[in-house]
């Protein structure tokens, strides 16, 4: 039977393993995501032999709303996992995607999500090679949850880890912070601005390749997603047993995001990003690395924002535009709503 992709809805039997499920997979998922491995139609994808160290990462996506300016849960599910593999200095190759669908979810929306996922995967140059679909009763999910797992191959000789930051190292940021978090929050709070705030959701593997090609001595790369810049820097400082000093005025923030933060009483340093990375590199390589980043479309607004210092308390400190000092602490207090 042909699925009614215009008015149809997800039904319990779409997850039952029977014919309805086969139709859904064939007419919706396989159609959008088609590639030879997926087309094998077996329980698992058999992939060609890979040489080098493998990097693997997984991430669940529960963002609400499912569609937001600059992306949707489909593209986000690709970018989130691809970026986690890429920041390890690896080239992401394959993705597995697992969908939890809520009964009654419009098939048209599902199609939009899967097609967006296909476009994101193509842009990031990865293949979705295997997947799974489950359906839960109405009220037991929130439309769609997507878990993706990515596998990639690490570049030879590249060793990146959050424990490698050393005093004197420079801290770089690939662009403006808080765009994704505020895009989601402004949708939810029903805030409207002259120009809509657009999520920065993007694949970072291309930018990272350029950074690796530059030959800069990179210590660590990390994408500051949940918890934002502040949380990620604190993680890195703790892992490496160092402190950090940032220059608040050097941290790029879009004026509209800054204004929205002001209005909602939020700090952009704690808002999620889905297309930004933090790089820590040897001091002498900071300028060439910055130039390499700025040549890539996803690094055009890159900046050197601070340096690693010795500090047994592992404080991330910043000099404010006023000239005073303060800590940029771990996120605490109320958890923010579901943003990724």
């Amino acid at each position: 039977m042909k699925l009614d992709l215009r008015h149809g809805r997800v039904e319990m039997n779409h997850g039952s393993g029977g014919r309805a499920m086969a139709e859904l997979i064939e007419q919706l998922f396989a159609k959008a995501l088609s590639n030879d491995y997926l087309a094998q139609g077996d329980d698992g994808a058999v992939l060609p032999a890979m040489s080098g160290r493998l990097v693997m990462s997984t991430d669940s996506h529960v963002v609400s709303p499912l569609f937001f300016p600059g992306g949707d849960i489909g593209s986000l599910a690709v970018h989130g996992t691809v970026n986690d593999v890429a920041v390890m200095g690896a080239k992401p190759l394959y993705l597995a995607a697992s969908f939890i669908l809520e009964e009654g979810f419009p098939l048209a929306d599902l199609q939009r999500i899967v097609e967006s996922m296909a476009r994101a995967a193509a842009a990031a140059d990865v293949l979705v090679v295997t997947g799974d679909t489950k359906v839960v009763e109405k009220g037991k999910g929130d439309g769609v949850f997507i878990t993706t797992t990515s596998v990639g191959v690490a570049r030879d000789g590249v060793e990146l880890s959050g424990n490698r930051a050393r005093p004197g190292d420079k801290i770089l940021l690939s662009g403006t912070i808080g765009d994704h978090g505020m895009a989601i929050l402004s949708q939810r709070e029903g805030l409207s601005f002259k120009a809509p705030i657009v999520s920065d959701s993007a694949p970072l593997n291309g930018l990272i390749e350029c950074m690796l090609d530059s030959g800069a001595q990179l210590r660590a790369l990390r994408d500051p997603t949940r918890g934002g810049l502040a949380t990620t820097l604190n993680e890195l400082a703790t892992q490496s047993g160092v402190g950090m000093r940032l220059d608040e005025a050097a941290i790029p923030v879009k004026p509209v995001v800054a204004a929205a933060c002001e209005f909602l009483g939020l700090d952009p340093a704690y808002l999620a990003n889905e297309g930004k990375l933090i790089a820590i590199c040897a001091p002498a390589d900071a300028e060439p690395l910055l130039n390499a980043m700025r040549r890539h479309p996803f690094g055009r607004e890159a900046a050197i924002v601070g340096e690693v210092v010795e500090d047994r308390h592992r404080f991330v400190q910043m000099t404010t535009p006023m000239g005073g000092r303060r800590i940029l602490d771990w996120l605490s207090g109320e958890p923010l709503p579901r943003i990724c």
Partner: peptide, 9 residues
């Protein structure tokens, strides 16, 4: 005062 580190000034 705390957020902007004004005591340093």
């Amino acid at each position: 005062i705390s957020r902007y580190g004004l005591t340093d000034l």
